[in-house]
Every structure is written in C-alpha cells, then in structure tokens.
Simulated assay, not measured.
Amino acid sequence: MSKSLHPSVIKFKEFVKNNPALIKEVRNGNSTWQELYEDWYLLGEEDNRWETNGVKTSPSAEKTDEKKGDWMSTILGTVQKMDPDQIQHYINNLSQALGAIQGVISQFQGSQPKQAAPRIEHKHPFSFRKD
C-alpha cells in the first residue's frame, strides 16, 4: 500500500526535479529538506531566495493566483519577514488594548464590590507565658 502525498509535497518534488541546485545544497549540508520545503511553501517559487541557489524561476499566472488565494501562507510570510522587536511592540499594544476593553466591560457589568470577611486581629499572634 502506498500512501498518497499531499498535493503541495508533489509540487515541491517537481520544483526540486526542475532545480538540481537544491539537491546539491542539501547534500553539502547547507540546509535540510524541511527548511527548503517550508521556504518554498511560505515564500513561493518566485522568491529571491531561490535565485541565490541558482534556481530557475518561471513565473506563471496560475501560481500567482494560487498564491494570492492562500491567505495563510501570505500571513506567515509577512510575519517571517517582520522584525522581532516590531512584533513584540505589536503584541504589547494588543495586550494593552485588551486590558482596556476588559476594564470597560467590567465597568458596564455593574459588578458589585466584594465585601471582605471581617478579620479578627489578635494583639499577639503567639501566646507565650513567662515562667
């Protein structure tokens, strides 16, 4: 029994067959198949990354339309190109905005203040006797 491969894996195999420079890159230990597949999936065949490896890119209308339709790969590609400090800044802003929204919601809920249980205070927490 042979398992059928995912269509994107089949397309990646075709891409590798058309570009033997990628095989040499993996054999030389410069990268792994997993890294190449992830870059190919996220960036597409027309990315500048493939030109550095001597890969021949052939633009086609079908691939461009498919790339535009795949919003997840577009988002992941954008996040991958972003500066980590910039991402941290956006996350902090989002956290502050969520905190403000939670504060407004709690004001409108009309939550009643909790009454604290009366505390019994002892003058001396330990009872020691002098001998």
Rank of each mutant, 00 (worst) to 15 (best):
L76F: 02
L43C: 02
K68H: 09
E62P: 00
I87L: 12
D47V: 04
M72G: 07
D39L: 04
E66R: 12
W40N: 01
S95K: 14
E62D: 09
W50I: 02
A61P: 02
S95D: 12
E66H: 10
G44A: 01
T57A: 03
L94T: 12
D70I: 05
Y90P: 08
M72D: 06
T57M: 01
K67E: 13
G44C: 03
N53G: 10
Q86I: 10
D39Y: 01
S58L: 08
D70V: 14
I75N: 01
P59W: 10
L43A: 04
D65C: 11
K56E: 01
T57S: 04
D47Q: 00
K68C: 13
G69K: 04
D83F: 07
N92Y: 15
D47A: 08
Q80A: 06
T52Y: 00
I87D: 00
K67S: 15
K63H: 15
E45Y: 07
D85T: 13
D39K: 03
N93I: 08
W71D: 05
N93T: 15
P59M: 09
P84M: 06
P84F: 07
K68D: 05
A61I: 12
W40E: 00
E66I: 14
E66M: 07
S58N: 12
N53C: 11
D47P: 00
Y90Q: 15
L43S: 00
P59C: 05
N93Q: 15
A61Q: 10
I75L: 14
D65L: 11
